[in-house]
């Protein structure tokens, strides 16, 4: 840590050094033994992921092209032997998904939910990080308090929120009543339920973003700001031209992860509203869960849903990374 090398900031996936090094060829590049070592070090992960995720994933691709359900896959249970009777149906499952008007409504809400969640968590996280990056009294205390929501297990927090937002005996309406204000149907009104699930997701996610971005901010060399001030740059200009670009490696990562996590955020919605009222807060993942677990398990339908989600995310991630590359970032 005491080397004089200037490290590139922000860390979640710092790259500038890497890029430089890659061009200059890595320290062990080109040597067979190095490759052997490299593969040996990566092997455990590839093995575990390949077996535990890769296999179900490939199986999922296959199942999504069949009409397999719990009832028609072959199995032997003690005295009962049931032969496999499911068939290959090509793209039928996908056709069915895309021709379902509910899917498109749900997709729209899933995007809205993801964009709102990511914008708010990253935006508010950045705001708080910038406040905490100043010299001020009680900074340590604020930081500790603001990180706390990350410390509570998500299932605990979500249950608490469900309780806080309850119509009759929740704290939120209790306080409104005490203040003589009309109460709000936090989880029962379709629109408010949407607001509430986003609110809770933001509450859960802010701490991680704040910590990551605070790390990024602290790594921005102070000289840059000093130089900018000498040049007479306003606070906004400094933010625009120094803070944001220097934060990019971190912000890029938190945005990417935030998008993936929100898009697939099952517990918050399921534990708060179970997708209700009347499906108003159902996102693609909770719907896939329904196919997979409610009633007769639809292996093929849920696999197809899973594939659609996977493809959407891969496309979104690629577009995002491509747009970053256009701005001169190498990922």
């Amino acid at each position: 840590m005491t080397t004089g090398t200037r490290r590139d900031a922000p860390g979640l996936a710092a790259d500038r050094t890497v890029r430089g090094r890659r061009r200059a060829a890595g320290p062990f590049a080109g040597r067979w033994s190095a490759h052997w070592y490299a593969w040996a070090m990566v092997a455990p992960v590839l093995l575990v992921m390949g077996v535990l995720i890769g296999y179900p994933l490939l199986r999922g691709v296959y199942l999504s092209l069949t009409d397999a359900t719990e009832a028609n896959v072959g199995r032997t249970i003690g005295m009962n032997t049931i032969p496999a009777t499911y068939r290959f149906v090509g793209l039928d499952n996908y056709v069915q998904i895309f021709s379902d008007s509910e899917f498109w409504l749900r997709l729209g809400w899933t995007f809205l939910w993801t964009v709102a969640s990511v914008t708010l968590t990253v935006g508010l996280g950045l705001g708080l990080a910038m406040l905490l990056n100043r010299r001020l009294r009680f900074r340590g205390l604020y930081r500790v308090i603001l990180i706390l929501p990350w410390a509570a297990p998500a299932f605990v927090s979500t249950f608490i929120w469900r309780y806080v937002l309850n119509n009759d005996f929740g704290l939120a309406n209790g306080m409104l009543r005490a203040a003589g204000l009309p109460t709000v149907e936090w989880l029962d009104d379709p629109t408010m339920a949407k607001v509430s699930v986003i609110l809770v997701n933001v509450w859960l996610g802010i701490a991680f973003n704040m910590v990551a971005l605070l790390g990024g901010l602290q790594s921005v060399p102070r000289e840059l700001y000093e130089a900018a001030r000498v040049d007479g740059a306003s606070a906004w200009q400094q933010f625009r031209n120094i803070t944001l670009p220097m934060l990019r490696p971190v912000s890029r990562t938190v945005i990417l992860l935030g998008t993936i996590w929100s898009f697939n955020q099952f517990p918050v919605i399921f534990l708060l509203t179970r997708g209700g009222p009347n499906g108003a807060t159902e996102i693609l993942v909770t719907a896939a869960y329904r196919d997979a677990f409610m009633g007769l398990r639809d292996y093929s339908g849920s696999a197809a849903n899973g594939m659609v989600i996977l493809v959407l995310l891969v496309v979104m991630a690629s577009l995002y990374l491509r747009s970053l590359r256009k701005q001169g970032e190498v990922w």
Binding site: L57, G60, W261, L284, A288, A292, G306, L310, A317
Partner: peptide
């Protein structure tokens, strides 16, 4: 590594259970 995070857990539970 990134893609593995994109597949919904709900769909993974049954095959993982069998594995």
């Amino acid at each position: 590594l990134l893609v593995t995070q994109m597949f919904p857990v709900a769909v993974l539970i049954v095959p993982l259970y069998n594995l």
